[in-house]
Amino acid sequence: MPRLFTGLEIPPEVALALSFKRGGLTGARWIDPDNYHITLRFIGDVDNGTANDVADSLDRLSHSLSFQVRLTHLASFGGNSPRALYAGVELNETLTRLQAAQERVLQRAGLEPEGRKFVPHVSLARLRGSSSLDLAGFLAQAGRFEPLSFPVGRFVLFSSKDSVGGGPYVVEQSYPLAA
């Protein structure tokens, strides 16, 4: 059974810049820069028939427009018990529309609605045993985050292994966006 999700790839030069943020945070399990991505829609473990339906349904969205993504800050999920460090994506109407369109076509293909609010980000580390004070100290030491921008000309259907951390991720199919 494949475990699937849709997302945006991070260009190598942006991944390299993000990788310089690695290190110095207690309890961080750093994600390999080759696995950096922006998840649009987690699909989960599905049978091969559903996987084919999903891939076919996503073909309908290739008419969406290409756009720019801008990473603007470091933040975390988990509040007082931080569980992930990420680079946040600046709000972008085109990105939000693409994600919402994917949600609609995937529900029509028979998937349950995504229960979580869409918060576009690039996960940099999974945190275990990091306190909010550890994280605050790391963010203070990290200094100013220089925004990173890149064009998005396609989205992809990724598969992942059922493992801690998920990677390595494999591009199963790509869907070009209109210029």
Rank of each mutant, 00 (worst) to 15 (best):
R108K: 15
R108S: 15
R108A: 15
R108P: 13
A109I: 14
A109C: 14
A109G: 14
A109H: 14
G110L: 10
G110H: 11
G110I: 09
L111H: 12
L111R: 12
L111N: 12
E112F: 11
P113I: 12
E114S: 12
E114V: 11
G115V: 11
G115R: 15
R116L: 07
R116V: 08
K117S: 09
F118L: 08
F118P: 06
F118S: 08
F118G: 04
F118E: 08
P120L: 04
H121W: 02
H121F: 03
V122I: 09
S123N: 09
S123I: 02
A125T: 13
A125W: 12
L127N: 05
R128H: 07
G129L: 03
G129D: 03
S130H: 09
S130T: 13
S130G: 09
S130N: 10
S131G: 03
S131L: 04
S132E: 10
S132Y: 01
S132C: 03
L133S: 10
L133M: 10
L133N: 08
L133E: 10
L133G: 04
L133Y: 04
D134N: 08
D134L: 00
D134F: 03
D134C: 03
L135E: 04
L135A: 06
A136V: 01
A136P: 02
G137L: 06
F138Q: 00
L139D: 01
L139Q: 04
A140Q: 00
Q141D: 11
Q141R: 15
Q141T: 10
Q141A: 13
